[in-house]
Amino acid sequence: MAMTGVLRPGHAQVRVLNLEESVRFYRDVLGLVETGRDAQGRVYFKCWDERDHSSYVIREADSAGLDFFAFKVLDKATLEKLDADLQAYGLKTERIPAGEMLATGERVRFELPSGHLMELYAEKTAVGNGLGVVNPAPWGREREHGIGPVRLDHALLYGPNVAEVQKIFTEVLGFYLVERVLTPDGENNAAIWLSCSHKVHDIAFAEYPEKGKLHHCSFLMETWEQVLRAGDIMSMNKVAVDIGPTRHGVTRGCTIYAWDPSGNRFETFMGGYQPYPDNTEPLTWTFDNFGQGLDYPQRKLHETFLTVVT
């Protein structure tokens, strides 16, 4: 399949309450690779197999939560076109100059009707995964440090106006709807899973009264064994675990939800299936089956899933 337009989740910037405690957590427990610090005090990380400079950035603040979530697009021409398309759709966009984030080109920022700041960018310095590009080893020492996820996979965000958000992603940014959970009356979508690739989701949204909330950022593991190993490492380090290890009905992904030291939820995720944009009929879950959608084996709609966000 041709990959054009929006390629993938690029970076998330997340607020933490204590920077150094969080650095230790993300570097040594989750096992991300620290790639830099900037003059604003932000700390940059990437997953071991990501080639671009960074995918997860933290800064110290007096509240937890998400500052912004960004997608990488194919090239600068695509960035210009999508900026124009967003404006033509009626959204206000803002340019953040190249270099404002380390190793990152110019960004186009806009606010969704859910209250989340989204960004698009075309350029981020490739630093490689440490294995080289000629006759590379399949993995290196960094995969074995901490939980060691492969990449930043997706995020689930909570906020109002999910129907409008869906229109922006599908009509302007080239995403398609993969799965959804209906509201109790069956008339609308309570939650949506959107893809710009053939991943089962690149971003998801759930209807929630407060704007701009982070439910979780998700990190990809290679195998179910690696998800179980992640659970072991969480317990060894007394990480607060929310749900799992289990399997979602929605996306069929295998999962653990847990919280970073500031209460930002993250996920260690693997699996799912490979949807294509010509799957025009999204998989649909009725609200009374939301429990199975969340936790298929236990068939439980865990209350924390609906109420605990940052």
Binding site: L17, A64, G65, A240, S262, G263, N264, R265, V308, T310
Partner: peptide, 12 residues
């Protein structure tokens, strides 16, 4: 008892 995020972030 809503244990929440256990990290001072979610407020429950």
């Amino acid at each position: 008892i809503p244990a929440g995020c256990c990290g001072g972030g979610c407020g429950v």
